[in-house]
Nucleic acid binder design. Structure first.
Length: 237
DNA sequence: GCGACAG
DNA sequence: ATCTTGTCGC
């Protein structure tokens, strides 16, 4: 896999990064379904040397067996600090380098982090989806923005995550009874465990993102793709 | 003005 | 994210 734009654009000030997000967000497609899914990738980033080295892990699983087909780990110097809302600028360069080493292109990508459940509707999953031009889903462990009611206790059940701010894109996303924008779902992936936040990244809608997240659930909190990527990125296994 | 704030 | 031991529970 290759990419047409170079990485110079990643040397940005926070203000420039925000401006870039505002420009890119309307390009994010949040409807439809990925076609003919044969394999699903999982992505996660870890850090070493007290944060000086960034470690990107990508795993590719066959669907529907969820069997591991390939895994890649890429290391490079960290070039940006962590700033809430600007996570993609810190993690995506390494993720792209890891993707470049994949033998086959996945049909769907699951990312550790938010999709459109982001202040400017451009979380790391959405942003990565634009670069890869692939359907992506964000699976996060904590909320960045938005509110939600009580989450059902049953595995597979969920509660909508909503926000007052409307998206920049003209083709808008779902709203609830109060006209709030639905930006994701608090999914109970496991009983007695804190829910995960599932939000569409790029090229699919909320319902589809949820369907795939649930379809990829194994016995643990995280869906298999991100669970395995997490394991690799954190050196555990 | 005062919090909150993905990984 | 990362630094970190043992411990409780299915």
């Amino acid at each position: 896999m290759t990419h047409h734009e170079d990485l110079h654009a990643w040397t940005l000030t926070p203000e420039e990064a925000v401006a870039l997000q505002r420009r890119l967000a309307p390009r994010v497609i949040r409807h439809g379904k990925p076609d003919a899914v044969t394999c699903i990738a999982g992505v996660d980033i870890g850090f070493e040397d007290g944060g000086e080295t960034t470690r990107a892990a990508v795993v590719v699983l066959d669907w529907p067996s969820l069997t591991l087909r390939q895994s890649v780990v890429h290391r490079e110097p960290t070039r940006m600090p962590y700033i809430p809302g600007l996570l993609s600028f810190r993690e995506i360069p390494a993720a792209l380098a890891a993707f470049a080493r994949l033998e086959s292109c996945p049909d769907l990508v699951m990312v550790d982090g938010q999709g459109i459940a982001h202040p400017r509707r451009l979380g790391v999953a959405s942003h990565l989806g634009l670069w890869l031009d692939l359907p992506t889903i964000g699976v996060a462990k904590k909320v960045l923005c938005g509110r939600h009611g009580e989450v059902p206790a049953t595995r597979g059940e969920w509660a909508p995550l909503t926000d007052r701010r409307r998206a920049e894109a003209p083709a808008d996303i779902e709203t609830d009874a109060e006209g709030r924008v639905v930006i994701g779902a608090m999914l109970r992936s496991r009983v007695n465990v804190k829910p995960v936040i599932v939000s569409p990244g790029h090229r699919l809608d909320q319902a589809t993102a949820l369907e795939w997240a649930i379809a990829c659930l194994g016995k643990t909190k995280l869906p298999e793709p991100t669970r395995l990527a997490d394991r690799l990125a954190s050196w555990k296994g």
